[in-house]
Simulated assay, not measured.
Amino acid sequence: MTPSAYSVHPTPVGDALIVMSDEGLVALQLIDGAPGDRLAELSVALGAVPDRDATAIGPVAAELDEYFAGRRRAFDVAIDWRLTRGFVREALQVVCRIPYGETASYGEVALGAGHPNAHRAVGSACARTPISLIVPVHRVVRSDGTIGEYGGHPGVKRYLLDLEAAAGE
């Protein structure tokens, strides 16, 4: 297990708990309030408590700031996929290929992951992703084009989709 570090970074859609390892970004989760509960859950999953270190998340924080300012369309940070396995990882890696400003349906993601009937499993993978924003699960929509949920915060999903649409104009 490689050492990990975390910090919290403010974004226009809420504070982001960012956890890094030597391999890359392990987790990026929007949080309400203090990171205690989320950090405890991640510590169990990682098998260690990350150290608080704002400098370790600097590159990710900078890329997030550029994204929200409309100056970044793709993230360069390496992703450490250790908290995902099997179909969840496959589906999330397909999600990473959805172009900026575009959307794909849960069914399209399932097809891209080689499991054309697994659209509900794609929904579960998106809901359980340890890495939001940089793994753009906000770009996955229902087959009828409606946006659906986003961790219980459809307003955040709408904001992200609108941000990308406006930057693409």
Rank of each mutant, 00 (worst) to 15 (best):
P154I: 10
H153R: 15
R158T: 02
A62K: 14
S7Y: 06
G101Y: 04
S105H: 03
T129M: 03
T129S: 12
A56T: 06
Y150H: 12
P59M: 01
P59I: 00
R120Y: 12
P130S: 09
R120C: 01
R139T: 07
A110K: 00
D80G: 04
L46Y: 00
P12C: 10
A40S: 15
G114E: 04
H138E: 09
E23T: 06
L111R: 14
W81A: 01
A27R: 13
G14N: 02
A165R: 15
A54V: 12
R72T: 12
G152M: 06
A62N: 14
R71W: 04
V95F: 07
V122H: 08
S4N: 06
L28I: 06
V49G: 09
D162R: 10
G151E: 02
F68M: 06
Y100A: 00
T55I: 01
D162N: 10
A40W: 11
V95K: 10
T11I: 07
Q29L: 03
S132N: 14
Y150A: 02
W81F: 01
V94Q: 11
G33F: 09
L83Y: 04
A56H: 09
V140F: 00
L25G: 01
T2A: 13
Y106M: 08
A167Q: 01
A121Y: 10
I98Y: 04
Y106F: 15
A40R: 14
V49C: 10
R158I: 00
G47M: 09
R158H: 03
D22A: 14
P50E: 09
G107E: 13
V49M: 14
C96W: 07
S132M: 14
R97T: 14
G123K: 05
D144T: 01
V77E: 13
R139D: 03
E63V: 03
P3C: 03
L25R: 04
V141F: 07
G155V: 04
V49R: 15
P154Q: 11
R52S: 04
Q29Y: 00
I131Q: 02
D53I: 10
G145I: 06
A78V: 03
F75N: 09
V109G: 10
G33M: 05
G70T: 11
V141N: 07
G123N: 09
K157D: 00
R120W: 12
G168P: 00
D80F: 03
D144V: 04
R71L: 12
L161W: 05
A56M: 08
G151D: 05
G152T: 03
G123P: 09
A54E: 13
A5N: 13
V94K: 08
P136I: 01
S21I: 05
G33Y: 08
S4H: 13
C96I: 03
L111E: 14
F68S: 07
A113K: 08
D53C: 11
